[in-house]
Design a protein around this nucleic acid. Structure first.
Lengths: 288, 288
DNA sequence: ATATTTCTCTGACTATGGTCAGAGGTCGTG
DNA sequence: CACGACCTCTGACCATAGTCAGAGAAATAT
């Protein structure tokens, strides 16, 4: 069996087992859609938000809320500051039912874990964490976007804010590449489920280009996304005729430096004018 | 976050990602139920079997088959030897559609694996295999059943057949416990999704009991089921006032012997009359 | 040979999930 | 204040999934 078949086989297996679990604990009288809605409302939520989170048609949502309302589980009121928006809140009975669902779900998982020894439970959790990390990494997309899109700028500002905290001397956001000035090079944006989670760019007319602003969002760290981003930037640069990339970095960014070394970068004398780039690295790209 | 929450979180994450994948490749015009049916028919299958495999109502199955038949994908004929049973077969067009579904499913998985390095793919597969092994182990049930039920006897005969192959001198099935004679003790049966996958029994009026016929089906090996079974037998025996268990075994059963040693059994002089029990082990049980 | 069981099909029915067009209220902008 | 954009609700649809009772044919037990 090849890798693809193994993965498919796992997916089939796991959805089957999960399906049995889920249907069992959620299928207690209430239809699945309404049960999920009950979950998502939590401590009150705007309908607009619920719609986008659950991907529902407005008519459909409205009808489900009416049904939950008739059962005395939910009340729908108006938004305090925007009269168009309505807000759903759980009644005490709704909160009770939601807690019931939660408890049943927890029970079914507890029953699953029960036959395992503590060591086996540990191993299961580790393996699940690995599957999850690698699946997340694999489903993150990396794509070239103009450097003045909202997502790109958001990443850059997060990057600047973080450096400002980490550098003893702080970081001046004016150091960032100015919007719309990346004419020779490319800005790559990493997205997970449409949310931006990382970025990086290469810049220069060739044959040498500079790699800058490589950043990974805190909640996407530990996945190996930094390495994927760096590789993607190198490949994109190489495809545009770049033969050598270099970059400057700051001594406090030890993980980044380790990544560069592990990716085949060699230290070179600092070349740039930026006061932050106290260290510099270089890598010769293979034509692919 | 405690273990239960971690597992729930993984399950939510994985079903969401899978849901996206599945809906994408299966949701190509054909309803999910019919697509699954197309898969399961494969190279022809009896309706009775399809019904039990997919858990369908006979009317529902019949209607779906009519719909697939009208689309020219399936033909339903009679069973050659049993006129009541009908058999579904894919037409060439049905096989083509099925192959299409397969290909789309493979493609979506291939796209998932693509961004990963070979080492990461390896790690993903290993982690999935671990999750699967442990989930299988955890969902296997172990239950006391009368020793003359069909499932119990089936396990015992599989056990005897296997010993007959492994022992140089063969194994005489008459050595097995006779049906219905286990009055002092208990026969424990392990089941995975209702299918028997292992067994074992303890026997004796106490305070010493004998453990016999511990067996794990070949396709459930490597999960740790042997250990779970042994523990379950010991617990059941202890709950019935047994303070010491002993067992005899054959020198060629090296994995079993390793399991006994690892589970706290000490070698004792052979005590039994059975010619196969050339080695013997004993363990004192803790009152729980 | 007759009764019972097994298997499939049919038609009627229900629930759930989901889409669509339009009505009507509310907000921000010119 | 008029207009367009935004948000929600309503009612009318539709497809899929699933259940149920009963009829009819074939096999099996008595």
């Amino acid at each position: 069996m090849d890798q693809i078949e193994l993965v498919r086989d796992f997916n089939r297996f796991y959805t089957q087992r999960l399906g049995v679990l889920n249907d069992h604990y959620l299928g207690q009288g209430r239809p699945l859609g309404e049960a999920r809605l009950l979950f998502e409302i939590g401590d009150g939520a705007d309908l607009r938000e619920l719609r986008s989170r659950l991907g529902l048609d407005s008519g459909y949502l409205s009808r489900m809320l009416r049904s939950l309302g008739a059962a005395g589980l939910v009340t729908v009121g108006s938004h305090p500051s925007d009269g168009r928006v309505r807000t759903a809140t759980l009644t005490p009975a709704g909160r009770r039912e939601r807690a019931d669902l939660e408890a049943r779900s927890r029970d079914s998982v507890a029953a699953l874990l029960d036959p395992l020894t503590p060591a086996q439970r540990e191993r299961l959790l580790e393996a699940q964490a690995s599957v999850r990390r690698l699946t997340r990494l694999a489903t993150i997309t990396i794509e070239a976007v103009p450097d003045d899109t909202a997502s790109a700028r958001a990443c850059l500002h997060a990057y600047a804010g973080e450096l400002d905290l980490r550098f003893p001397e702080g970081y001046d956001p004016a150091t960032l590449i100015a919007p719309g000035t990346l004419t020779e090079g490319a800005f790559l944006l990493a997205r997970e489920a449409e949310q931006p989670v990382g970025c990086g760019l290469w810049q220069g007319a060739g044959p040498i280009a500079e790699i800058r602003h490589v950043w990974v969002s805190p909640d996407a760290r530990g996945l190996g996304l930094g390495r994927r981003l760096l590789t993607a930037i190198e490949q994109d640069a190489a495809a545009h005729g770049i033969t050598t990339v270099r970059l400057g970095t700051h001594p406090v960014l030890t993980e980044a430096i380790a990544l560069y070394r592990a990716s085949g970068y060699r230290a070179i004398p600092a070349y740039g004018s930026s006061p932050y780039d106290q260290l510099a690295f270089e890598k010769r790209l293979q034509a692919t």
